[in-house]
Design a protein around this nucleic acid. Sequence first.
DNA 1: AGATCACATTCAAAAAATCGAATGAGTTAA
DNA 2: TTAACTCATTCGATTTTTTGAATGTGATCT
Lengths: 131, 131
Amino acid sequence: MNQTSAIHKTSQLFASISQPARILILLAIGEGEACVCHLETLLGYRQAYISQHLMALREAGVVKARRDGRYAFYRLKDTHILNLIHEAASLAGTKITSYARLLPAPPRQSCKCPECAPDLTKPGLTLQETG
Amino acid sequence: MNQTSAIHKTSQLFASISQPARILILLAIGEGEACVCHLETLLGYRQAYISQHLMALREAGVVKARRDGRYAFYRLKDTHILNLIHEAASLAGTKITSYARLLPAPPRQSCKCPECAPDLTKPGLTLQETG
DNA sequence: AGATCACATTCAAAAAATCGAATGAGTTAA
DNA sequence: TTAACTCATTCGATTTTTTGAATGTGATCT
């Protein structure tokens, strides 16, 4: 592994997250797991749009997918990518707030969006942000 | 400063360094200062090419320029950008070696700017890398 | 079986980045 | 002043990325 190829790989990693939608997706996945429909609901993007970005992130080795039935669950390959994002935000003179992960209901395997997670429709349960 | 604009600024920072030539330039500048002619000799790129990338890095707020006569000296606005690069390399599964005291090997064809010229007369200075 | 759901992929047009070439602008030396 | 030097900028062709739209694939349900 020479210097040139190391720099090339590094630049490709940067390129894969040099886009607002990608960063939002990574933040939404956080340290947990998220299915596409969850991201769709959470971020308000169309499914195909999210899938495209997830494909790019997958090819860049940033996320990995797990299939379970007709759902696909995405997870960060290395959660240190979140640190990278926060440090970049700091260098850019701003601050990005992380999405707090909602605790998954013990027996449930589905995603957390209102569509597949009836628990979230209970009053009083909302999405929260934390720094 | 809301979340959307913070993410936008962060993605722009990533975009500005999502390119091998840019990363090489930042590594070459390192924690010191470098004139364009120095980078030209060091990296083997054309002057206009380097100037273009420096302009992009300047607009992204990554580097700042200082003019001294007909020379322009560039410096990192925040050397933490180097940490960011190394962390990204690690996430990409590679390792980038920093340049320390990097000078062209003899016979030296480096620029004659005040910054580099004195070193050129000293014997025994060669191209060195350090991690 | 057909219908529906969750997601992936392809296609194409628009937008942006890349990069070489030429040129401009300011500084200093002759 | 003229010339040479250092760097910045513009221009344009090529390539890449972005993004909406349409469609494909496989799993699940009825």
